[in-house]
């Protein structure tokens, strides 16, 4: 599903974010990306989404060579990838329902699909009673659920999550992880960058550790360490 071969990324001012990273992630895997701040976790995710372009190496995502992808085709790649952020990135002027529907509307899905899918996903993330609320009226955990619902409503092959529990307390984080686990079990590949030791140690999934842009550990049922 995801394959990186000798991928490097250097930012302006000679800041090396990733150095010759080679990783292969199979369909349906759940992968934790761990490592200190600045180790290249976010860059790793942003390269998969083509928000950044690698300076060297080859990157295959969902069967597409990301390096050779024409810029007008990037939106179609992103439709295969859901993205969840630490700060949710919800639209404050839209209700929960509208935020989730937005993810379908802007990729041109017909209204009938929107009407069917959105309530279904809201049920999945447990927010049906709050569909008409605005993000500002929700707790952090609820907002993150909305964000996950928006990322998943189009049934992407891959879900990328950048510190999704970074702003949440441990109890709420467990709820979010249950949700991501459930999404993963439905066949979606999940790659999650995190600092949350408790979560990584409890879930015992594949762990890829980055340090200064280099993969220093890759264990199939790893811990945070």
């Amino acid at each position: 599903m995801i394959r990186l071969e000798g991928v490097s990324k250097v930012y302006k001012g000679d800041v090396t974010a990733l150095r010759e990273v080679s990783v292969e992630i199979q369909r349906g895997e759940f992968v934790f990306l761990v490592g200190p701040s600045g180790s290249g976790k976010s860059t790793f995710l942003r390269l998969l989404n083509r928000e950044e372009v690698a300076d060297a190496g080859q990157l295959m995502v969902a069967g597409k060579d990301i390096g050779a992808l024409r810029s007008w085709k990037v939106p179609y790649l992103r439709r295969e990838i859901g993205y969840v952020f630490q700060d949710y990135k919800l639209l404050s002027r839209k209700t929960v329902y509208e935020n989730v529907a937005f993810g379908l509307e802007v990729i041109g899905r017909p209204r009938s699909v929107v009407r069917k899918q959105v309530p279904f996903i809201l049920e999945l993330v447990g927010l049906t009673p709050k569909a008409e609320r605005f993000p500002g009226e929700l707790s952090g955990g609820e907002q993150q659920r909305v964000s996950i619902a928006r990322a998943f409503v189009n049934r992407p092959l891959i879900l990328l999550a950048d510190e999704p529990t970074g702003n949440l307390d441990p109890a709420t984080s467990v709820g979010i992880m249950r949700l991501l686990d459930r999404i993963n079990r439905s066949g979606t590949t999940v790659v999650m960058a995190t600092h949350d030791r408790g979560i990584v140690d409890t879930m015992r999934r594949r762990v890829i550790e980055l340090d200064r842009g280099v993969v220093v550990r890759d264990e199939s049922r790893g811990v945070y360490e």
Binding site: G103, V106, G108, R150, N154
Partner: peptide, 17 residues
């Protein structure tokens, strides 16, 4: 700006934006 960012994120085509 925020809306456009989300649109790009979820894969809205350039012309749609």
């Amino acid at each position: 700006k925020q809306e456009i960012e989300v649109m790009k994120l979820v894969g809205a085509s350039n012309w749609f934006i």
